[in-house]
């Protein structure tokens, strides 16, 4: 740790998080320079703080599954499905706009339970069914979306009590509620990953699933918990989306899957598993939001934004794979390890 100054800088930059911090500052600077009168305003800061938490929370869900070498492509389906569960409870069982805070909390609890159940479904498929996470969650995502459509007939559900707006639009101590929620979840996930046995096991499993099995790690339970956590994070994101839109619909947030994967990869999470830090994901979220809001101000269309996100995802992968080169080979070629010599 007492290296000479020059190598220390290069070693620092070898870390994806450090590189990302640099990129974030650059993006901020560029956007600020391009449109200082609109970008550098308190209004813009506030609007950004309300915008990003919903997909940032989805990115946390992707992060935890990616750490195990898996992925959860059903998060948007889960988010919408859970929002619809909550909104149906509010509008059909509860007296809609007149419903009290008790009903609201109950609907949130129902949404969280639905998210956990959906995650459990994924977890069972992956841990006990042995399905590859990509296909398991693609399939289950369709099912969740289908359920959401079936429950609503494809229309938006509206008519919530005024208190429902707080989660997406309210403020506490001058901070937007969604931002606070994201902050708490990110801090919580970071703590879980770095300070609990579960978090350590997630990373070890991601690094080498077979060795985890041989080290008597309870893999099935681990995977169940990971996908349940992912489902519950998606449910929270769904509730924030619902609150901000003041409605719930089966096809909200269609582009969020890509965005969430992009953020996780941008944040330095290794899609092959075993490495990833929440700090990186938070930096990636901020970078994306600066970029997104800058593009907004430059009146870049939604389509162009889609193009930029896709291109960015690939570009980040190209840069990051250089550090992962070794791991990639190992993972792809499980039989490549020479049996005898280890040199």
């Amino acid at each position: 740790m007492t290296a000479a100054p020059a190598p220390r800088v290069s070693r620092l930059l070898a870390q994806p998080e450090a590189r990302l911090a640099l990129i974030m500052v650059l993006v901020f600077a560029v956007m600020a320079a391009l449109a200082p009168e609109r970008f550098l305003t308190p209004q813009n800061a506030t609007s950004m703080a309300f915008q990003f938490p919903e997909f940032a929370i989805l990115a946390l869900a992707i992060t935890i599954t990616m750490l195990t070498g898996g992925i959860d492509l059903s998060i948007v389906g889960i988010a919408n499905c859970c929002a619809i569960v909550a909104s149906l409870l509010l509008t059909r069982l509860a007296p809609g706009a007149e419903a009290g805070v008790g009903w609201l909390l109950l609907s949130y609890a129902a949404a969280l339970a639905a998210g956990a159940a959906a995650g459990l479904f994924n977890g069972v498929l992956i841990a006990f069914g042995g399905l590859p996470p990509i296909l398991a969650t693609l399939g289950s995502g369709l099912i969740f979306t289908g359920l959401a459509v079936a429950l609503t007939g494809g229309t938006a559900i509206m008519g919530f009590p005024a208190s429902a707006a707080w989660l997406g639009n309210g403020s506490v101590l001058g901070l937007p509620v969604p931002l606070v929620v994201f902050g708490l979840l990110a801090a919580g996930l970071s703590l879980v990953l770095s300070r609990t046995g579960f978090g350590l096991k997630v990373q070890m499993f991601g690094a080498n699933p077979l060795a985890a099995r041989y080290a008597a790690v309870d893999i099935e339970r681990l995977l169940l918990r990971v996908y349940v956590a992912s489902g519950m994070l998606a449910a929270i994101a769904g509730l924030i989306i619902m609150s901000r839109a003041n409605s719930a619909k089966a096809d909200y947030g269609q582009s969020y899957t890509l965005l969430a994967v992009l953020i996780a990869v941008l944040g330095g999470v290794n899609p092959y598993g075993g490495y990833g830090r929440v700090v990186g994901v938070v930096l990636a979220v901020l970078t994306m939001q600066f970029l997104s809001s800058g593009l907004n101000m430059l009146q870049v269309s939604n389509f162009a934004r889609e193009l930029i996100w896709g291109a960015l995802l690939i570009l980040v992968m190209v840069i990051n794979t250089r550090t992962w080169g070794f791991r990639r080979l190992r993972r792809r070629l499980p039989t490549a390890a020479p049996q005898g010599e280890t040199r």
Partner: peptide, 26 residues
Amino acid sequence: DRLTEGLFLTQSILRNVGVGRIEAHG
């Protein structure tokens, strides 16, 4: 087969030892 079954190659030496005793250090 130490490389594929025994070790978490990219993880630290300490973690490779500690993984067996996670429960005991709760």
